[in-house]
């Protein structure tokens, strides 16, 4: 049985003052979690902003939840079912955590006070901020603010959940907790997860899209991308100059990612990060994959 398409991008292009952010991208997404990977400037954020109705493309067609966005009504209906976490998000200085999410809930047209407050408490509990709800946002740590930003995106269990680097600045324990929240969301919603954290993609996503210079370089199952690195990752006593990437691991041995095996090397299990490095080569290495 085919899954319904909830996000459809056909020939979508966007330029910023001569720089191409997206170059005729064709992609469609259905329920489940899709990871978006790519170096800085690859077009991930632009893609998310277009899908979030924040930005209009210069060319191409965008359909969300089966609707084009040409009428105000269609735009309104789609926005009612959309949750968006931007890459960078500031907060009003005077708001408490609860007050901010409550305000966002009103903007999402939760007009009845009691169910709105119940929903705010629910999403704050999901991101483990229920105990800090009455604290002013400016007193929260960076990771807590990131979770607060995620909470507003989760309001109303949206059908489309668009997350731009949701785990940046979040500690490992909280990151695992957030993975549980996101994996549950992926069971019923279309979740697009833009990140530099390949381990998050590996842990959460069944599909990965790699963007580079506004174009799709890879679109498929995470396991398929990882498989492209099979036989190309080696553990050796020293670095391999011909490798795409090489670094000394905690065990003292060098992990070499490249086509040929250095002398005395033993094959290692590839990760998504290895496959990503091989796919994008020097560009990924220059940008830093886990920025």
């Amino acid at each position: 049985m085919s899954t319904p398409t909830t996000i459809s991008l056909a020939g979508v292009a966007k330029r910023y003052r001569g720089t191409t952010a997206l170059d005729g991208v064709d992609l469609s997404f259905g329920p489940g979690i899709t990871g978006l990977l790519g170096p800085n400037g690859a077009g991930k954020t632009t893609l998310l902003r277009i899908a979030a109705t924040v930005l209009a493309p210069d060319a191409g067609d965008v359909r969300l939840l089966g609707r084009t966005l040409r009428s105000t009504e269609a735009l309104h209906d789609v926005r009612c079912r959309l949750g968006y976490l931007p890459q960078e998000m500031g907060f009003p200085r005077t708001f408490t955590g609860f007050g901010f999410v409550d305000y966002m809930a009103v903007l999402k047209e939760w007009t009845q006070r009691a169910p709105r407050h119940d929903e705010v408490r629910r999403v704050l509990a999901l991101v483990d901020l229920d105990g800090l709800a009455t604290k002013r946002v400016r007193t929260l740590s960076g990771g807590q603010r990131r979770r607060l930003a995620l909470a507003q995106a989760l309001l109303g269990e949206p059908s489309l959940l668009l997350l731009d680097e949701p785990t940046t600045g979040v500690d490992p324990e909280q990151r695992v907790a957030l993975r549980q929240v996101l994996s549950r969301a992926g069971e019923r919603s279309t979740v697009l997860l833009s990140t530099h954290q390949t381990e998050d993609v590996e842990a959460l996503c069944d599909r990965v899209v790699v963007l580079d210079r506004g174009r799709v370089r890879f679109d498929g199952a995470v396991t398929d991308l990882v498989a492209t690195a099979t036989g190309k990752v080696w553990l050796a006593d020293g670095p391999d100059p011909s490798a795409r990437a090489s670094w000394r691991t905690g065990t003292g041995r060098h992990r070499n990612v490249g086509e040929g095996a250095p002398a005395g090397a033993e094959a290692a299990e590839p990760t998504l990060e290895d496959a990503y490095l091989l796919l994008l080569g020097d560009r990924a290495r220059a940008e830093g994959v886990a920025a």
């Binding site: 902003r49 976490l85 890459q87 966002m104 903007l107 999402k108 930003a149 995106a153």
Partner: peptide, 19 residues
């Protein structure tokens, strides 16, 4: 006051006119 959260506020059903 919400200008710093403008990116998150922008795709809200309550548009700029309503706000």
């Amino acid at each position: 006051s919400l200008s710093r959260s403008a990116e998150a506020v922008a795709p809200s059903p309550a548009d700029g006119l309503t706000r």
